[in-house]
Amino acid sequence: MSAFLHIEDLSVHFPVRKGLLQRQVAEVRAVEQVTLSLNRGEAFGLVGESGCGKTTLARTVLKLVDPTSGTIWFDGQNVSALKGTSLAPYRKKVAAIFQDPFSSLNPRMTSGQILSEVLHVHRYEGNIMDRVTELLSLCGLAPRFADLYPHEMSGGQRQRVGIARALALEPELIVCDEAVSALDVSIQAQIINLLEELRAKFGLTYLFIGHDLSVVRHLCDRLAVMYLGRIMETGTSEEIFSNPRHPYTKALIDAVPAPDPVGEDFKEHVSLAGEIPSPLDPPPGCVFHTRCPLAMEQCRSAVPPLERLGCAHTAACFALKQTANTTRTGAQSQTSTNI
């Protein structure tokens, strides 16, 4: 395996149990046959709407959820089979930053205690207090913050403590699950810049989960678009945003308004009709066909494979061959404008 993190044919299903005997009556197919590779030092984005499986995928990488099938390779080692104490070295190398800085920090501990706890658990050998001060300053917080409780800090400061905690054990991979979504606009930009600085400084690899396309595009070198547990399209940020090929990616990008009234006046907006189907009962064939403006007979019965479109661009869509020659506006005119 040459990739730093390689996820192969990963599926995660959750059983739905009912009744006295807790019989399994259905299953939620949260992640379905996902294959992805991350290179060392890159920021990789996972985007999609709620229920698309991006968080489940992240939790599986963090070994918080066991996959139903498939393998995760980290730095050449198969980590899907690791359990208990054999997981400790992996947990040291992989850290997480969560969305809500209000609920991901223990309200009864000062940020100094929160940071030193991690170091204690993993038997840090140096001076713990020095390391805590160092971590705080890496994240732009003065040493006095070590004595503050989460409720004494603002949202942005709390998220900085969350990031300091993720950095404590010098990880190689950080999974950022909606790490900037809960923050005010002006604070969000500070945290985005901090994440970028830290990546450059320590050569970190990010798996960045987000629903805000402009943030993911800004932070990530490559990204994958997910819908109902499956990958619809992968590619470099430049490629995906300048030349989106999958109809879902196009709709997703089109749904993002730009902070520019002049440009907005000249843009034709097309809203995607319908809602995301339930992952309890995903549609047969291509999961997107129920909302797709280009859906054909074939899409209702067969699952389109991810096809290579360029050196680093793949998409799973049967209509690709048809759309290859149409311009973006041409494809849009077929899109239903009814809402």
């Binding site: 400061q157 606009v185 930009a189 810049n193 402009s214 943030v215």
Partner: peptide
């Protein structure tokens, strides 16, 4: 402060310092 789809992604954001 807001990243935009119609701008070069390699240009760093210019956040407002401090908190609201």
């Amino acid at each position: 402060s807001v990243p935009r789809l119609d701008q070069d992604r390699n240009v760093p954001l210019k956040p407002i310092q401090g908190s609201p």
